[in-house]
Design a protein around this nucleic acid. Structure first.
Length: 161
DNA sequence: GAATTGTCACCAG
DNA sequence: CTGGTGACAATTC
């Protein structure tokens, strides 16, 4: 899937990026949290990383605990991200459906909020696809979105029409 | 699948 | 204000 970059604050996980260029990802992180003093400490992230690995490796199995998330965004974005977290593994929704649940008819408002999601996988924005069922875009590459969905579908292959 | 059209918040100029 | 632009949607071939 590529390299993962996880970052936590005192409140919880604040970023989870996927990519291939470590220095570039670090720069992006610094750009997003200019005030932050970055400390590399793999040992302190051990629990977080193990949960991420578990969610990716075996999405069907419910994860044993939840890493607290330090969601930073507009209230609207945070509300959208919370909805995403209620989508179970193996299921998908469309932008339009979420829009309706938020009371707007414009799927693009939702799209923007979702696209701003800083926490890959644990905020499952990859479970949102187009109304016709086709895979839409993904900040971290459509190929990764497809891979994540394929892994989640694998756990429940008989629900595919 | 691909192409076309409708549509609208957002942003740069 | 104008024009370009989307992690969209509905329709059509």
């Amino acid at each position: 899937m590529g390299e993962f970059l996880a970052a936590v604050t005192g409140r919880g996980l604040v970023a989870l990026e996927i990519g291939s260029d470590r220095p570039f990802m670090l720069n992006a992180l610094r750009a997003r949290l200019p005030q932050a003093d970055l400390i590399e400490s793999p040992s302190e992230l051990r629990d977080v990383v193990s949960e991420i690995v578990r969610v990716i490796d075996d999405p069907a199995r419910q994860s044993q605990f939840h890493v607290p998330l330090d969601l930073r965004g507009t209230p609207y974005e945070i509300q959208v991200w919370s909805m995403l977290r209620s989508i179970p593994a193996g299921e998908t929704t469309s932008y339009g459906t979420l829009a309706a649940r938020m009371g707007t008819s414009d799927a693009r408002e939702i799209t923007k909020a979702i696209a701003a999601n800083p926490i890959a996988v644990l905020v499952p924005c990859h479970r949102v696809i187009k109304t016709d069922g086709s895979i839409s875009g993904y900040r971290w590459g459509v190929a990764r979105k497809r891979e994540l969905l394929a892994r989640e579908q694998r756990g429940r292959p008989f629900e595919l029409s």
